[in-house]
Write a protein that binds this DNA or RNA. Structure first.
Lengths: 190, 190
DNA sequence: AGTGTAGGCCAACGATTGTTGACAATTGGT
DNA sequence: ACCAATTGTCAACAATCGTTGGCCTACACT
């Protein structure tokens, strides 16, 4: 898949990308400066420009998120909510691109568009495999996203105190039934 | 309550505050510049500094949020979730300080702290009046906040397409049972 | 060994930012 | 009508940002 010969600067490219992910995740799009990213990577700011063109494209490379959603059809249908909740929580614990995208999405239009794309191409198809009427998949996926993003916002971005202190299993236990209902309930009031 | 004589510059102060709310809500903390706010208010940037000291204090004044939560004990206990969902949704539709705070909270530490304060002083007490064990109020309030903030994020900040197109009543119908469970369920798995 | 090319650093540009100080205009009290 | 305080304007500062061009170095290939 990775065609082209390995370049001598691959290590530098990777260092830049790693530093960019960290900074974008910790400070958002505007406050994460190219200079700071370059300093973290131990190189000159001009290298960032040479390899990634500009700040927008660097962010695009840093916020390349793959949700790695599991196959929800394999397993008990009445536990898809909990399994999905557990997956997202585990995914978020140590994946900086997701935090970077969430933090930046609040102020950066391009980041918001990218989240839109991830929802449509990654979450909606999986939701369609477990919900009663596949035509409702976009709506149900949006509802799932609202709860998952809200929890991530409280836990990893805002760091609201009761939420950061809750064990991951407890959060999973609370969110699971919610997602289950968003995914499979025939009617909102169930 | 408003002691001190009415000053001649009150109109200017109000214009600054209105423009600031709009800009902070639309662009977040860092991208909303004092110059742009002053231009919207039709005055000189210097006046902003004179009346509000610095950008941080201007934001603090602009993001002074009052959730105006209703008394949840007055009404059928099995509908507190829906009523709370409806209240939040209506509140968000035309209150810029709330959007400003949410957008800025993602990147600004002071804004995040302020949200923490609003949660503790406004939401937790109300939650305590309807949940079985008042000692669980902080946890339950945090769960409510995660779903409400997540929905607001999707609908008003990220503007994810299935979410912006849903009628407000439909969103209320979906979120209501979720909040109901977070508020009153004896166990997560109910 | 020689040479072309890619990797890397330095200095600097132009734009924008929050913020400050000096100065003019207007108002209200006496 | 005078004076002091409030309100407003103008210019500019210092810092920081993304971004650019020039120049040196070191590796790769013949």
């Amino acid at each position: 898949m990775t065609h082209g010969k390995p370049r001598r600067s691959d290590a530098t490219r990777a260092a830049i990308l790693a530093a960019a992910r960290e900074r974008f995740a910790a400070e958002g799009y505007e406050r994460a400066t190219i200079r700071a990213i370059a300093a973290d990577a131990g190189i000159d700011p001009t290298m960032v420009m040479r390899y990634y063109g500009n700040k927008e494209r660097l962010f695009a490379a840093a916020a390349d998120v793959d949700l790695r959603l599991p196959d929800l059809t394999a397993g008990p249908p009445d536990q898809v909510g909990t399994r999905l909740a557990r997956h997202f929580l585990a995914r978020w614990e140590h994946d900086e691109p997701m935090a970077a995208l969430l933090r930046a999405g609040a102020t950066n239009e391009a980041a918001a568009q990218r989240m839109h794309g991830i929802l449509a191409t990654q979450l909606v198809p999986v939701v369609a495999t477990v919900c009663p009427d596949p035509s409702q998949a976009p709506t149900r996926a949006a509802l799932v996203a609202s709860q998952v993003l809200g929890a991530a916002l409280c836990r990893y971005v805002l760091r609201l105190s009761p939420f950061t202190e809750m064990p991951a299993e407890d959060v999973t236990a609370w969110l699971g039934p919610t997602l289950q209902r968003y995914l499979t309930a025939l009617d909102p009031m169930v």
